[in-house]
Design a protein around this nucleic acid. Structure first.
Lengths: 241, 241
DNA sequence: GAACCTTGTAAACACCGTTCACTGAAACCG
DNA sequence: CGGTTTCAGTGAACGGTGTTTACAAGGTTC
């Protein structure tokens, strides 16, 4: 079935090298250095040959974005798996720190994926990766008492749609939850948390804090503490340690 | 003294046209369309002539960023001045809405100023413009009872420096306040608020919410309500209206 | 009016994305 | 096996870019 014809293998190999070269150029010399000719030069071929693999420079950049998102998703999941504690708040902390760490370690990738004026709603954006994780964690934290503030009526429809997405995603991982666990209020809360996380990380990566912050990490930690406190996690033991 | 020599007038005029053309290109056709040759074409001159005005394409883009920041600052101040109510919470609302409105109306400018990996701390960034306004508003709201959560020790030094900046700025507008009004806790709170505002606006402008939000405005309004409530503004009358 | 400064030009260089006609080898098929 | 097809890759070309250089022309100054 899987006729691994010689040509197919070579093609796959070349495509891998293209992505790898594009990524290296982005990381080492910035977005504007990711040119078709530079990539081709790296592979020892000519620029027009790349058109056998991508329709345009733009299509190649889109592919690059997708690769980046996938890599970050893998990094988040890996860091979560490496978190030994089975307490949900520790896991949430791990994922948040993982996101910040990744963004700071990959500023060019972060900027490319976020700043590029993407057309619709990208399939594999950071936000969905993150929120799917968060949704899973919240759903698994059945015992916790959560606050459940009222949600503005105008947001009900959108949030309900997103709620269904999260319930489905969590369901695919073998856990079935009802509307009561992943309530609209909690969904909304998670979205607000994402806004704060993203805001902090973007400001930090882009160096756009309104004043010089010598060490932003305590600020980030403090924010996470507040997020967890707000959603009802008891923070006694975490603060005591 | 002001010898308005003919050549100086022409030069100033040309420089204005350059900035204007660059801005128009950015708005109408995106960042990549702001090329030296396109600008020169617009003015009816040749590209190398632009080097009499800017050292490089990069320098011209930096100038463009500065112009944008200044314009947004002017827009914020104008909208604040147009706010008839003298209640501080209304003024804060006005400025927040003004920021969001400006960003949504000028996505290319917003993206350019934020996403460009700027070297140091830009002088006229959105954040400082905004926070100076916020600082002034808080300082003028002497009567309100504010919460004053403890601030992580690691942030004291940075926040104290920023506190001094704000006090100075407010002072330049004729109001003198002490550390008690613009306390470290309030400064910290304002910074956190900025993180949330920026996070929401950036996500909305870049279309990066993790799910399709059909109408983000209620979400923004709800966030502002919460910000104002958290800092201790009584929200009764606003909610009743 | 002569010397100087400034603004602009034209030509050139190296680089870019993209297209097109073409080559050579792998793959396929009778 | 032999002929045909498919396809990755080439080289040349077009129009675009930032930037440098030598040079012309006009304003400024003494």
């Amino acid at each position: 079935m899987t006729q691994a014809t010689r040509r197919d293998r070579l093609r796959a190999e070349t495509e891998r090298e293209i992505r790898q070269a594009a990524r290296a150029l982005l990381v080492e010399r910035g977005r504007d250095a990711v040119t078709l000719r530079a990539i081709a030069r790296e592979l020892g071929i000519t620029a027009p040959a790349l058109y056998r693999y991508y329709d345009s420079h733009d299509a190649l950049l889109r592919q690059l974005c997708d690769d980046i998102c996938q890599d970050m998703g893998a990094a988040l999941h890996a860091d979560l798996a490496a978190e030994t504690s089975d307490q949900v708040d520790c896991q949430v902390r791990a994922v948040c720190h993982s996101f910040r760490r990744w963004a700071l370690a990959h500023p060019q990738e972060f900027a490319l994926v976020f700043a590029s004026p993407r057309d619709p709603l990208g399939a594999d954006q950071f936000g969905s990766v993150f929120l799917q994780l968060a949704g899973g964690l919240i759903a698994s934290n059945l015992g916790a008492k959560h606050v459940d503030d009222p949600v503005p009526k105008a947001l009900h429809e959108d949030l309900a749609r997103f709620q269904q997405v999260l319930i489905d995603v969590v369901g695919q991982h073998g856990v079935t939850v009802g509307d009561d666990v992943l309530s609209l209020g909690k969904i909304y809360y998670v979205v607000q948390s994402w806004v704060r996380l993203y805001g902090h990380v973007a400001l930090e990566v882009f160096g756009r804090f309104p004043f010089a912050v010598s060490n932003p990490e305590p600020m980030f930690d403090s924010m996470i503490d507040q997020l967890l406190t707000d959603i009802g996690f008891d923070e006694e033991e975490a603060a005591a340690q």
